[in-house]
Each structure stands twice: as structure tokens, then as C-alpha cells.
């Protein structure tokens, strides 16, 4: 029973992983790609790890999977933030459909 619930969670995680990587291909510029992939891939991999925890219970594998979830939730947004900042500072322009860009005006001064 536990194993079936874990496998359902894993399927949800795999689907979100796929959407994240599809967004990496389809979106037009760096920032939108970062949006899609950082959100979807983080939640997808955490879903896979949580499914692993549900499958194995409180064994060595399950506890380490929980630690891995905490670690990924703490570090993935930080690296996405750093990459977005680095892309702006290295001078990558946002794509053509961008409505407003208040950050470039700030760092030009």
C-alpha cells in the first residue's frame, strides 16, 4: 500500500520534471527559462525523493531522502537567484515581448 502511494508521488514528480525541461526548450529568453525550470524541476525532484521516502519508510534511505529534500529546497532558489543576477549583470537583454524592465534602469546608474 505504501509502495503504491510512493509510486503515485513519483509519477507526479516525473511529469513536473518533464514540463520543466520542456519550458527550458520552449521559452524565449534566459529569465523565463529560469522561471519555468527552477520551479518545475525543483518540485519534481522533491516529489521523486518524497515518493522514495514513502516507499522505504524510516530507514537509512528514507531519512537521507528527507535530508536531500530540505537541501534542494534551500539551495535551488538561491542558485536561480544568483544566475538571474549574473545574467543581468553580464548584459543579457530580456526578450522582445518584455513589458517593463526596472532593474536595468537601476544598474545602469
Amino acid at each position: 500500500m505504501n509502495e503504491n502511494i510512493g509510486i503515485i508521488l513519483m509519477v507526479i514528480g516525473l511529469v513536473f520534471d518533464f514540463f520543466g525541461c520542456l519550458g527550458l526548450i520552449r521559452f524565449p529568453d534566459v529569465y523565463t527559462r529560469l522561471q519555468a525550470s527552477a520551479k518545475c524541476v525543483t518540485l519534481g525532484t522533491c516529489g521523486i525523493l518524497f515518493g522514495l521516502f514513502v516507499c522505504t519508510g524510516f530507514t537509512a534511505t528514507g531519512i537521507k531522502a528527507l535530508l536531500c529534500i530540505a537541501f534542494i529546497f534551500l539551495t535551488a532558489p538561491v542558485s536561480a537567484h544568483a544566475l538571474a543576477r549574473g545574467a543581468y549583470r553580464s548584459g543579457v537583454k530580456p526578450c522582445e515581448g518584455t513589458i517593463v524592465d526596472q532593474y536595468s534602469e537601476t544598474i545602469k546608474k
Binding site: 534566459v30 527559462r33 529560469l34 525550470s37 524541476v41 525532484t45 525523493l49 534542494i72 542558485s79 543579457v92
Partner: peptide
Amino acid sequence: TAPDRAVAVDMLGILIVG
């Protein structure tokens, strides 16, 4: 551009954990 590649490398790293 280079940031595109960096984003893809980051995502690949998280996928490998999966």
C-alpha cells in the same frame, strides 16, 4: 548565450539527484 547554458547545467545537476 552563456547564462542559458548555466541554467541548463543547473537543471541537469538537480535531475541527476532524481
